[in-house]
C-alpha cells in the first residue's frame, strides 16, 4: 500500500483528480458531470491520498472535520434554493444568463443552478471522506489494540493536534 511508487504517483494523481473533479462539476450543466460525480471523484482523490500518505497527511490537506464541508455545502444549497423565494420566484428557480461577460472578451452561459451543484459537491465530499476516514480510524485503532503498536500509517503522524 505504501510503496514509494504509489506514494509518488499519488502526489501527482491527487491534484489532477481534484482539478478534474472541479472541472466535471462545473461543466455538469451542459455535459456529463455535475455535483454528485465531481464530489465522488474528489473524494476518491482524497482517499487515494490518505491511503498513500496516511491519516496525518490528509489532515494537513484538510485541516478540519469533514462535517464542516457538509454544513457548508448544505448551507450553500439551501441558500441557493431559498433566495428565489425572497425574490418572489418559486423555490429553486434558476437564474439563467445566456451571455455573461467574464472579462478578456469571453462570455459564458451561466445558470445559477451551478451554486446548487457546488453545494451538492461539498456535501458529497464531506460525507464520503468523513465516513471513510472515520472507519479507517477505527481500523487503525483496532490495529493498535491488536499489535500493540500503531500502524505505519498512524505512526507517520506529524503530531498534528487535530
Amino acid at each position: 500500500m505504501t510503496s514509494t511508487l504509489f506514494k509518488t504517483a499519488a502526489r501527482l494523481i491527487v491534484p489532477l483528480t481534484l482539478i478534474f473533479a472541479a472541472y466535471i462539476a462545473m461543466r455538469g450543466h451542459n455535459s456529463p458531470g455535475g455535483g454528485f460525480i465531481g464530489g465522488l471523484m474528489a473524494s476518491v482523490g482524497l482517499i487515494l491520498y490518505r491511503m498513500a500518505h496516511g491519516r496525518a497527511a490528509l489532515l494537513r490537506l484538510l485541516p478540519f472535520h469533514p462535517r464542516v464541508l457538509v454544513a457548508l455545502g448544505l448551507a450553500i444549497a439551501y441558500v441557493t434554493a431559498l433566495v428565489p423565494l425572497a425574490l418572489g420566484q418559486p423555490l429553486l428557480t434558476s437564474l439563467v444568463i445566456d451571455g455573461l461577460y467574464i472579462g478578456l472578451g469571453q462570455t459564458i452561459h451561466f445558470a445559477s443552478a451551478v451554486f446548487f451543484d457546488i453545494g451538492v459537491l461539498l456535501v458529497v465530499v464531506g460525507v464520503t471522506v468523513g465516513m471513510i476516514q472515520r472507519l479507517s480510524e477505527e481500523v487503525d485503532s483496532q490495529h493498535i489494540k491488536e499489535s500493540g503498536c500503531p500502524t505505519t500509517a498512524a505512526s507517520s503522524t506529524g503530531g498534528n493536534p487535530r
Partner: peptide, 27 residues
C-alpha cells in the same frame, strides 16, 4: 433550465427539491 445535460438539469432544477432532500439525507 439553461443546461444542456438534461439529467443534471433535472437534478438541480426541475427536481431540485428532491436533490435538496437527498443531500440532507446524506448529511
Amino acid at each position: 433550465g439553461g443546461g444542456k445535460n438534461v439529467v443534471n438539469v433535472i437534478l438541480v432544477d426541475f427536481r431540485g427539491f428532491d436533490t435538496l432532500g437527498e443531500i440532507s439525507v446524506l448529511g
